[in-house]
Design a protein around this nucleic acid. Structure first.
Length: 484
DNA sequence: GGCTCATGTAA
DNA sequence: TCTTACATGAGCC
């Protein structure tokens, strides 16, 4: 029920039966329900049995209208063949959980704790403040900008004053290196210790595994989210953060399979925009960022520099987010006009992408919502807001929704089919995690070849686009070992 | 105890 | 002033 309501409006904060009753039926405004005593859902029911009965009655009243609404909006298929079957798949993953080696986790945590303590002592010494709280932006702001009077030229502001985020500290570094250098390091280590070291240890259950919750009605684009803990943001980019992945393990006799889509969002852009250049690059299996750089900077693919490739990569991903010149400039650390030149060159090289973005926004402005290939809708009322800034944000959301949403749809199809195939094949292998475009499966050694091949095939065939879907597979005893 | 803010992880 | 999430500690009520 909640999931059907989510498809109809993914922006709601919650999907409680009492609210749904009010929103989707004319039948029972809350007052009437309470006074009639039939559908009182807010707590005066005598016991669990009576509550359950009332909830069942509420469902009975909502089901018809909501099904009709799904149907009218062309989302019946999305609901019945993807979202609804996915409920059990996610429930099973939550129940199974993922194995964690607490000894590894504790030893990582201990090392980080020591470093944080020694950095803390050093920083308080340098600052000459016994009780400086290094986690307090307020205290840091006072120290840096008031007491030490560092020059805030070009420094971002927050609502409460000058920012003290990492980007800002980098700019200030030369003015007080013996403090700011270790402060940056302290931030980094404290983040890892607090959020991942402590955070993950708190979530390990009696069975030695972590059972996160995978939310199906939270992300407005159709993605899943994870909480308690969030397993979608376990560090991977830095070596130091990535070690946390060594603590995610499989039992003896099994291996961890990690299968992820290769650049699925860019492939979605290529398909949606029907851009010949992008489609050709993906179809012929070129390095997409290299091919993009060659076209954007007008050089031979063989002559693309690493810097050009890296810029092209950021432009590509920025595009999926509805990026503008200003944002690209920030990201690349170059002036806005230079970023604008790069962006223009991109749109000249891939004209259909520009056309797709424009058409998407226009359509969303007209209808009030965007729609993915699978029919998932996202209303964007911001497009009609009187505030220019909010309208602009709406345009970026519109550009992003079809892309991120399509990738999410494809991924969900794959999840449902993987679960089906594992069950049908009588395998013991089990899905244990998913991270937006990646599945992690615990596989008994003797099922390895068969299951591996099966999963790749399912993911590849989850959707038929104008570009091939590529899947990377790796194996290991831990999540870290199975990466790359 | 709950809320917002600033910060920083991920795709 | 580039999307989508979630967790943390500080600081406030």
């Amino acid at each position: 029920m909640a999931i059907a309501a989510y498809l109809i409006d993914p922006a709601e904060a919650r999907y409680e039966l009492a609210d749904l009753l009010e929103k989707h039926t004319r039948f029972a405004p809350p007052g009437d329900a309470a006074s009639s005593g039939q559908l009182d859902l807010d707590g005066t029911a005598a016991g669990p049995a009576e509550r359950a009965g009332r909830e069942a009655l509420a469902v009975h009243h909502i089901a018809g209208p909501i099904e009709a609404s799904l149907d009218a909006q062309g989302m019946a298929n999305l609901y019945h063949s993807i979202e609804n079957p996915l409920v059990r798949v996610l429930a099973k993953m939550e129940h199974v959980g993922v194995g964690v080696d607490t000894n590894t986790l504790r030893s990582i945590n201990e090392r980080l704790t020591h470093e944080v303590e020694s950095l803390g002592a050093e920083l308080r010494e340098v600052a000459g403040k016994e009780d400086l709280n290094l986690n307090s932006p307020t205290q840091l702001r006072a120290l840096l900008f008031e007491e030490r009077e560092l020059s805030p030229v070009g420094v971002k502001k927050t609502k409460s004053g000058y920012s003290t985020d990492a980007q800002t500290l980098e700019k200030l570094k030369d003015q007080w290196p013996e403090f700011i250098q270790p402060l940056l390091r302290h931030r980094e280590v404290e983040k890892l210790r607090g959020t991942y070291g402590e955070g993950l240890l708190h979530e390990v259950a009696e069975d030695g595994r972590i059972h996160a919750t995978f939310n199906q009605t939270v992300a407005r684009t159709g993605r899943l989210s994870s909480d308690r803990p969030n397993l979608h943001n376990i560090p991977v980019r830095s070596d130091e953060g990535r070690v946390f992945r060594t603590a995610f393990v499989t039992p003896p006799g099994t291996k961890m399979l990690v299968a992820d889509y290769n650049q699925i969002e860019l492939r979605c852009i290529a398909h949606l925009a029907a851009d010949p250049g992008l489609i050709e690059a993906f179809t012929s299996g070129q390095d997409i960022h290299n091919a993009t750089a060659a076209r954007v900077f007008g050089v031979d693919p063989a002559d693309v520099t690493l810097e050009q490739r890296s810029k092209a990569k950021m432009v590509s991903y920025g595009l999926a987010y509805g990026m503008e010149a200003y944002g690209l400039g920030q990201r690349l650390n170059i002036p806005t006009d230079e970023a604008a030149t790069i962006l223009e060159a991109y749109f000249v090289a891939f004209p259909n992408v520009k056309a797709y973005m424009d058409a998407t926004v226009q359509e969303a402005r007209k209808t009030g919502y965007t729609e993915t290939l699978f029919g998932r809708r996202r209303p964007i009322p911001e497009l009609l807001n009187s505030n220019w800034r909010i309208r602009q944000a709406g345009e970026r959301q519109a550009m992003n929704a079809g892309i991120q949403g399509l990738a999410a749809d494809i991924f969900k199809v794959a999840l449902v089919r993987i679960d089906e195939a594992l069950a049908a094949g009588g395998h013991q292998a089990e899905l244990v995690l998913q991270v937006h475009d990646e599945v992690i499966v615990e596989v008994p050694d003797d099922e390895r070849d068969e299951v591996g091949a099966q999963i790749v095939e399912i993911m590849r065939d989850a959707a038929e686009l104008d570009v091939p879907l590529e899947v990377n597979v790796s194996w290991g005893d831990t999540w870290a070992a199975a990466k790359g």
